[in-house]
């Protein structure tokens, strides 16, 4: 009991002295509050941005999954052909590649300007170049992939710059250094036109697009 009282007194005296220490200066100026609010705002915006990216990724994934499932379920019916664009303009290197592949482009923007019949004919033309070991019986569908540095293959395939009759890809892209479509820097590969057999979703042909304008597109 004596010990407790002794500790009480010791605690009381010590804690009272703690409460008399010199405190640091406090800054409640508008500048500091502004900076604090600014950092809070950045945090909130970052969180919102991340949520938006995650939502967009989920939407793209769901869309690809739904289209793939649809293709499997309607094996006897060719997919409707349409043009899907996620970029308003096509980089010049891509226009070069399209030209070398004899794919028509608009003179003003360089965008592919194919009708559904032309898409079908283009796909069939490349289909005829396929080796006999990889025949397809349905029209091929093509998309243009232009991945940025650091982009995973899955992300690149899920966000084609330009696509026709896109029905989803299951195949991994071949190994290689994917870089952005900046023709001014040394680029190993700027993009690919990927032909996909539908409804089998087999990736059967890729037309590599060299980054250097004027060089030949390799079909393989």
């Amino acid at each position: 009991m004596t010990k407790i009282e002794l500790d009480d007194e010791r605690l009381y005296q010590s804690m009272r002295r703690v409460m008399q220490l010199q405190p640091p200066p406090v800054d409640i100026s508008p500048d500091r509050r502004g900076r604090r609010l600014g950092s809070l705002a950045i945090g909130v915006l970052t969180a919102v941005g991340m949520a938006a990216v995650i939502t967009a990724s989920l939407l793209i994934h769901n869309q690809v999954t739904a289209r793939t499932q649809h293709a499997v379920h309607t094996a006897a019916t060719p997919m409707p052909i349409g043009v899907k664009k996620s970029s308003p303009t096509v980089p010049s290197w891509m226009a070069t590649c399209l030209s070398e592949a004899s794919i028509g482009t608009a003179a003003s923007t360089g965008e592919p300007s194919l009708t559904s019949d032309e898409v079908d004919a283009t796909a069939r033309r490349f289909n005829n170049e396929l080796p006999a070991s990889a025949p397809t019986t349905t029209p091929l569908y093509l998309q243009f992939v232009a991945p940025d540095p650091g982009t995973s293959e899955g992300d690149a395939l899920a966000s084609p710059v330009w696509a026709v009759g896109f029905s989803g890809l299951h195949r991994q892209m071949p190994g290689g250094l994917f870089t952005s479509g900046n023709s001014s820097s040394s680029i190993f590969m700027s993009g690919q036109i990927v032909f996909v057999s539908d409804p089998g979703n087999k990736w059967v042909l890729a037309l590599d697009c060299p980054s250097v304008p004027g060089s030949s597109a390799a079909v393989g």
Binding site: M15, V18, M19, Q20, L21, Q22, P23, P24, V26
Partner: peptide, 15 residues
């Protein structure tokens, strides 16, 4: 308030 309660409040935070 800072002048009056500052030290004991800082002591509280320190403890």
């Amino acid at each position: 308030a800072l002048a009056e309660f500052g030290p004991e409040l800082f002591g509280l935070a320190l403890t």
